[in-house]
Design a binder for these strands. Structure first.
Length: 596
RNA sequence: GGUCCCGUAGCUCAACUGGAUAGAGCAUCUGCCUUCUAAGCCGACGGUUUUGGGUUCGAGUCCCAACGGGACUACCA
C-alpha cells in the first residue's frame, strides 16, 4: 500500500472520530483505486462504516468526504455514488509523485536491502533425460521468483538439486556400454544431455524386447520384467556404484559431466544461473542421522522391524516412513538431510522456497511438518512453490509416447519463428547476422517466458505446439515492441530537452493521469508478487501498463507536441513507462531489445 | 474411500484478495500507415462466472452440496 492510501485510511479514521465519535482502526478502512467510469482517483468504501455512523451510506460518505477535502489539501473534491466515496486528488500531487519516481534509482525494485536471506530451489532435473516443457515452466518460475524476492529486498540464494544417482542413471550407463561404441558428445555432435537421454531410451527399448522374448517362451509378465538380464545388470551397477567401484564411478562421472555441460548450455541460453548446486549423490545419506536423533528426541517412532515413522495424524496427514527397516534412506530422508544441511551452509537462512510441481504437494507438507517436529527454526516459513502441469491438447506429456516437448527444440523454434516474422515485416534491415540472431532470440524467448509466466502458478495450463505461441496481442513481444517505441522517443529527445515534470494542471489530460497512477503502482506490485511468490502479477501488470501506454501513444504525439509543457509531460510518461516495463520484464527474466 | 488443486466469452487467460456495469488477447467481421516503429490503434460480435442452496448492504471471490477435470494417498526415486 502506498503513502497516499495510508494517509487516506488515517484521515478517514480520524474523520470517523470527529464526525461520529466512532473508533475505526485505520487499517480497516477500505481504500482502492476508483473504477474508470467514475469521477475521482481513490475510492473509500463506506458501507462498513454505516453501522457506526448510524446514517445512510450516502450521508456517511458526504460527511467524510467533506471532512477529508477540508483537511487534506491533496484532495480537490469528492463525489458520492451509493456507498462509495470517490476522492479526486490534485494533479500537482500526481505530477510530484511522478517526478519523485523518476528521480528514484530503481523505482520499485531497490527497496531496503536488509531483509532476510531466502533460498529458492528450482529446475532440479534428472540426469538421464533432457529438459522439456515442464522444466521450462519450473525454471522460469523459480528464476523469476528469485528476481522478485531480490527486488523486494531479500538476499536470495538460487540452488538446484541434481538427481544424479539411482537406478535410472545406471540404466543409461548400461545402455551406453552395450550400444554406445564409445560415442561422446564430441564424436556425435550431440548435446551431452541429449546423448545420455538417447541411451536411457535405448535401455528401455532393449529391456522391453527382453521382456517380450521371455514372455514368448511362457514366462509370466511379472517374472519376465523382474528377471530381464538388462535390469539385473543395472542393479549390479547400482551396487557397484554404492561400493565405489572405480570403473563404474569413472563412467558415472563422465556421463554426468556430459549432461551437466548440456544443461549448462541450455541455462546459458535462457539467461539462468545458480548460486549453488546440490547433488543427490552427496546429500542422499545426510538425513539418516537427523532421523535417528529425531527418534531420541521422541519426535519419531521406531517400529519393531526397525523402520522409522513419523505420525502426522494430528496435522491431518498419515503416518509416513522416514527410514527403511534396513536403515536405508527414502526420498524423504534425503530431503530432510538436505534441508538441514542448507541451514548449516547458509547461516541465518530464513526460509526455503521449493519450486516443484503440484503432484508433490503431499510430500512437502510432510517435509515441512517433519522439520517443524525436529525443532528447526522457521520451518513453517518454508514454502512449496507449487505449479500446475503444462498440458498438451492430447493430455499429459509422456516420454514413452514421444509427446514430450523438448526444451532446446522449443526455444530454437521460438527464435526461428521470431526471425521469420521479423523478415516478413522488414524489421531487421541493416542489422548484422549476429545482431539479428540475438534479436530473434530475445523476442522468441521473451514470447515463451511470458507465455509460461503470465498464468497463475497454481493453475495447470494448456500448450498447443501446433497453434504455437503468439507474437501479437497479450504476449511478450507486444510488450517489448511498445517498450522499444518508448525508448525510441526518449532517445530522440535526448540532448534536446531536459526532462522536467510540469506541475501545472493544463499539462495533463485525464488519460494521462490514469496512466501515471498505473505507473506509480509499480512498487506495490513488486511487493505483492514477492509476498505470494507469483510472477504472474508482474506479467499482468506489465501487460496492463503497456496496453494503456500503447493506447495513449496512439493519439498523444510527444516530440511533435508544440506546447513545451505538454511535451515535457508526455516525455515523463514515456520515461516512467519505459523504466517500469523494463524492470518488470527483467523480473520475469525477459530481455528487452533496443529495436525491433 | 480420504486429502488437495481447478471449473469465468468458441479458445487461452485476468479480475487489485468481499465492492460499483466481470475485463484482455486469439478467432470472426470492420475501419486507420504523407504524422515520434502498424509485432500497433479504434469499433463490432461474444457471459445466467458448471449447477443448486447459504452467509450480507454487496459473492466470480467465503461456506455447504452436487456435477465435471486433474494431482496425491508406495519400505519407487
Amino acid at each position: 500500500m502506498n503513502q497516499l492510501d495510508l494517509d487516506i485510511q488515517d484521515a478517514i479514521s480520524k474523520a470517523c472520530k470527529a464526525c461520529f465519535e466512532a473508533d475505526v482502526p485505520a487499517e480497516q478502512v477500505q481504500v482502492q483505486r476508483t473504477r474508470k467510469d467514475f469521477d475521482g482517483d481513490r475510492t473509500v468504501v463506506v458501507f462498513p462504516l454505516t453501522r457506526l455512523s448510524k446514517k445512510s451510506p450516502e450521508e456517511t460518505a458526504e460527511m467524510l468526504g467533506a471532512w477529508l477535502v477540508d483537511q487534506d489539501e491533496r484532495m480537490t473534491h469528492f463525489q458520492v455514488v451509493k456507498g462509495f466515496l470517490n476522492l479526486s486528488v490534485s494533479t500537482t500531487y500526481w505530477a510530484e509523485s511522478l517526478d519523485n519516481a523518476l528521480q528514484t534509482e530503481g523505482f520499485g525494485t531497490a527497496l531496503t536491502n536488509s531483509k532476510s536471506r531466502v533460498m529458492v530451489e528450482f529446475s532440479s532435473p534428472n540426469t538421464n533425460k533432457p529438459l522439456h516443457l515442464g522444466h521450462l515452466r519450473n525454471i522460469f518460475l523459480g528464476f523469476s521468483v528469485s528476481q522478485i524476492l531480490k527486488a523486494a529486498g531479500h538476499q536470495v540464494v538460487k540452488v538446484q538439486i541434481i538427481n544424479d544417482r539411482g537406478i535410472h542413471i545406471c540404466k543409461s550407463m548400461v545402455a551406453w556400454k552395450h550400444f554406445g561404441e564409445g560415442a561422446t558428445p564430441e564424436t556425435t555432435g550431440l548435446k551431452g544431455d541429449k546423448l545420455v537421454g538417447k541411451y536411457y531410451v535405448a535401455f528401455d527399448k532393449a529391456y522391453k524386447e527382453q521382456v517380450k522374448q521371455a514372455m514368448s517362451t511362457g514366462t509370466s509378465e511379472a517374472e519376465a520384467k523382474e528377471s530381464a538380464p538388462l535390469l539385473a545388470e543395472a542393479r549390479t551397477m547400482l551396487q557397484q556404484w554404492e561400493q565405489g567401484d572405480a570403473e563404474t564411478m569413472a563412467l558415472w562421472t563422465t556421463m554426468n559431466q556430459w549432461v551437466y555441460d548440456g544443461f549448462e548450455t541450455t541455462y546459458a541460453e535462457m539467461g539462468v544461473t545458480f548460486d549453488q548446486l546440490y547433488y543427490e549423490s552427496n546429500t542422499y545419506l545426510l538425513g539418516r542421522d537427523e532421523v535417528l536423533s529425531g527418534v531420541k528426541q521422541g519426535a519419531f517412532n521406531q517400529r519393531e522391524d526397525g523402520s522409522i515413522w513419523v505420525d502426522l495424524s494430528d496435522a491431518g496427514l498419515d503416518e509416513k516412513l522416514l527410514l527403511r527397516k534396513d536403515g536405508t534412506a527414502v526420498y524423504m530422508t534425503q530431503d530432510i538431510g538436505t534441508a538441514i544441511q542448507r541451514y548449516k551452509d547458509f547461516p541465518g537462512l530464513d526460509r526455503q522456497i521449493y519450486t516443484v510441481g503440484n503432484e508433490q504437494e503431499y510430500h512437502f507438507k510432510v517435509l515441512f511438518k517433519v522439520l517443524e517436529k525436529l525443532g528447526i527454526q522457521g520451518a513453517d516459513r518454508n514454502f512449496h512453490l507449487s505449479y500446475g502441469m503444462v498440458e498438451l491438447p492430447e493430455g499429459k506429456m509422456k516420454s514413452r509416447e514421444g509427446t514430450v516437448v523438448d526444451a532446446d527444440e522449443l526455444m530454437q523454434e521460438m527464435a526461428r519463428t521470431a526471425g521469420e516474422m521479423a523478415q516478413e515485416l522488414g524489421k531487421t534491415d541493416g542489422l548484422t547476422d549476429s545482431e539479428k540472431e540475438q534479436l530473434h532470440k530475445t523476442i522468441g524467448y521473451g514470447a515463451l517466458k511470458y507465455f509460461l509466466l503470465k498464468v497463475s502458478p497454481t493453475k495447470s495450463m494448456m500448450f498447443d505446439p501446433k497453434a504455437s505461441i503468439d507474437f501479437i496481442g497479450n504476449t511478450g513481444p507486444f510488450i517489448q515492441f511498445n517498450y522499444v517505441r518508448a525508448l525510441s522517443v526518449l532517445k530522440k529527445a535526448e540532448g534536446q530537452i531536459v526532462l522536467r515534470v510540469p506541475k501545472e494542471d493544463s499539462a495533463w489530460d485525464a488519460t494521462e493521469l490514469q496512466l501515471i497512477q498505473s505507473a506509480l503502482e509499480w512498487p506495490e506490485m513488486v511487493q505483492a508478487a514477492a509476498k505470494t511468490y507469483d510472477p504472474s502479477i508482474i506479467a499482468n501488470y506489465c501487460y496492463d501498463l503497456t496496453k494503456s501506454y500503447s493506447r495513449w501513444y496512439q493519439d498523444h504525439p510527444v516530440l511533435k507536441e508544440p506546447d513545451a509543457s505538454k511535451r515535457e509531460a508526455r516525455l515523463a510518461i514515456c520515461a516512467i513507462c519505459e523504466r517500469n516495463i523494463k524492470s518488470g520484464m527483467t523480473l520475469l527474466g525477459i530481455q528487452m531489445p533496443d529495436r525491433m
